[in-house]
Design a protein around this nucleic acid. Structure first.
Length: 441
DNA sequence: TCTGGGGTCCTAGGACCC
DNA sequence: TCTGGGGTCCTAGGACCC
C-alpha cells in the first residue's frame, strides 16, 4: 500500500480570517499584527506584493496604513481559534486520520484512499473548506510528512497548480522543484543548520536528499538525519492523532508601557498567573511548580538591564487560580528589583499532571478546614464549583467577566497590551455577531 | 518611540547511585 | 601503587516550529 500524507495549510490564515467577515477587504492588502501591535505576523498576498516582510516592525509601514493602502488588524486569537476549529471540523469529514499540527495546518493520512485520484480528492477537500468556512487552503501530497510539506510549498508558489500538488505524481519532474527549494525552507531546517549545511555544499532540498544519512548524523544530529530519510520517502515522523499531553503552559506578555512600580508588576503577574490557571483547567491538568520571570528591554543598550526568574514548588499539584496567583506573587517578590523599567514578564507552569491523579504529600498533617474554602489536594465541592462557575461564566460572557482582585481592574491599565486595530469576536461573542443588511456586501 | 507569544525536541554535562 | 564503569535523573542551552 502506498503511504500518502496530505498537508492542508490555510493561506495567509489570520488575514484570511479577517477577510471572511469583511468582504470589502477582498483583493486589498491586509496585515495582522503581533500582540501589542508590535510587528507583522500575517500578510495577504497583496500585502506581500507591496513588500511588507514577515516580522517587520509595524511602525515602518504605518504610513501605508494611514493612507489606507493597507488594512491593519491587531491579532484576534478568539476569532482565529474558532475559525481554526471550523476548518479542522471540515477536514475530519473526510478522514479521522488527522493530526492538528498548528492553528492553520493539519496532516492527513490518505493511505486508505489509494486507488482513488488523490489530487481530485485534495481538490474536493479544498473546495469544501472554502465553501463551509470561507478560508482558502493549499494541499500538498507526498509519501512522508516532510515531502507533503514540500509539495504544499510548491503548490502555494505555483498558481497553475490551483493550490493542490502531489509530489509523487510528478516523478522525475519533482527533482526540478526540489532543486529550486533552499535547504533552509525544508521543514525542520532553520537558519543555523542551513548555514552549516551550506559549508558542506548542501544548498537545496535536492542536495539534502542526496546527502549521506550517516555523515549527516555525525556532522549534525538525529533530527537532520531523519529529515534526509523523509526526503527520500522513508517515513520517520508518524501522524500524531492524539496530541501528547502538554509539558508546560505559559503566559508571557510585553507590556503596553514599561512597568516601574512593584504594585503594577504584581498585578500583571497575577493576571498572567490567572490566565495560565484557566489554560490548565481547559487541558484538564494540574501543576506542581511554576516559574515567574521579569525582564527589561533587550533592545535598548543605554538602559540598565536586568532579568531574573524564580521557581516555586507547590505543596501539592493544583488547578486553583488563587493558589497559583499566591505562588507566582511570592516568586515575583524574590526577583523584583526597583529602579528598572521592565518590558516583559511571564508565568510558566511546569511539572504538569492529569487532573484526576493527585499525588498526596508523604508527611502531610491532616488539617480540618471548612469544606467550602479548603485548598487541600481534594478541595471541597464548594471550591471546585467556584472554579467551574468562574470558567463557564468567562467562557460565555467573554474573558475577564469575573476575575480575581489581584489581577487589577480595567482595560485602562497601562501594562496591558496595545491593540488598536482589533476586529470584533465575530464568532465567539453574541454581541459581536456580524449583522447582514440588505444592500451591503 | 516602536521590534510577539507559545510550544517541542535533543544533547551535553554534572550529581548521584550501585 | 592503585583509584571502574554503567546507569539514571536533572538542568541548561541551543535548535527548531507556527
Amino acid at each position: 500500500m502506498r503511504q500518502v500524507y496530505a498537508l492542508v495549510d490555510c493561506n495567509n490564515f489570520y488575514a484570511s480570517c479577517e477577510r471572511v467577515f469583511d468582504p470589502r477587504l477582498e483583493n486589498k492588502p491586509v496585515v495582522v499584527l503581533s500582540n501589542n501591535d508590535g510587528c507583522v505576523i500575517a500578510r495577504s498576498n497583496e500585502a506581500k506584493a507591496l513588500g511588507v516582510p514577515m516580522g517587520a516592525p509595524f511602525h515602518e509601514f504605518k504610513r501605508l496604513a494611514d493612507h489606507d493602502k493597507i488594512a491593519v488588524f491587531s491579532s484576534n486569537y478568539a476569532l482565529y481559534g474558532d475559525m481554526s476549529a471550523r476548518v479542522m471540523q471540515v477536514l475530519t469529514q473526510f478522514t479521522p486520520a488527522i493530526e492538528l499540527y498548528s492553528i492553520d495546518e493539519a496532516f492527513l493520512d490518505l493511505s486508505g484512499f489509494t486507488g482513488r485520484d488523490l489530487t481530485a480528492l485534495a481538490r474536493d477537500l479544498a473546495r469544501a473548506v472554502r465553501k463551509q468556512t470561507g478560508i482558502p487552503v493549499s494541499v500538498g501530497l507526498g509519501s512522508t510528512k516532510v515531502l507533503a510539506k514540500v509539495a504544499n510549498r510548491i503548490a502555494k508558489r505555483n498558481p497553475e497548480t490551483g493550490g493542490v500538488l502531489d509530489l509523487d505524481a510528478l516523478g522525475r519532474h519533482g527533482d526540478a522543484h526540489l532543486a529550486q527549494i533552499d535547504v533552509k525552507d525544508v521543514w525542520g531546517i532553520g537558519r543555523r543548520w542551513s548555514e552549516r549545511l551550506h559549508q558542506f555544499g548542501i544548498h537545496t532540498a535536492l542536495d539534502l536528499r542526496a546527502a549521506d544519512p550517516h555523515l549527516i548524523r555525525r556532522r549534525f544530529n538525529v533530527v537532520v538525519e531523519r529529515i534526509v530519510h523523509e526526503l527520500r520517502g522513508t517515513s520517520c515522523l508518524p501522524l500524531e492523532q492524539a496530541p501528547p499531553p502538554k509539558k508546560q503552559i505559559m503566559t508571557t506578555r510585553s507590556f503596553g508601557e514599561r512597568v516601574t512600580e512593584a504594585e503594577v508588576m504584581r498585578e500583571a503577574v497575577s493576571s498572567f498567573a490567572a490566565r495560565t490557571a484557566v489554560k490548565l483547567r481547559d487541558q484538564r491538568l494540574r501543576t506542581g511548580a511554576l516559574m515567574v520571570f521579569i525582564q527589561t528591554s533587550p533592545f535598548n543598550p543605554t538602559e540598565p538591564s536586568y532579568q531574573n526568574s524564580a521557581v516555586r514548588t507547590l505543596p501539592h499539584a493544583s488547578r486553583d487560580t488563587g493558589e497559583i496567583i499566591r505562588a507566582a506573587t511570592s516568586a515575583l517578590q524574590e526577583i523584583w528589583r526597583p529602579g528598572y523599567r521592565y518590558m516583559k514578564a511571564g508565568v510558566m507552569l511546569l511539572d504538569l499532571s492529569p487532573e484526576d491523579i493527585v499525588q498526596q504529600e508523604l508527611f502531610s498533617t491532616p488539617v480540618v478546614r471548612d469544606a467550602a474554602v479548603s485548598l487541600g489536594p481534594n478541595p471541597g465541592p464548594g471550591r471546585q464549583s467556584l472554579l467551574d462557575v468562574l470558567d463557564r461564566l468567562n467562557q460565555r460572557m467573554g474573558r475577564g467577566t469575573l476575575q480575581y482582585a489581584a489581577e487589577g481592574e480595567g482595560e485602562g491599565r497601562a501594562w496591558r497590551m496595545r491593540q488598536e486595530h482589533k476586529s470584533p469576536a465575530y464568532t465567539t461573542r453574541w454581541n459581536d455577531l456580524p449583522v447582514a443588511r440588505a444592500g451591503e456586501a
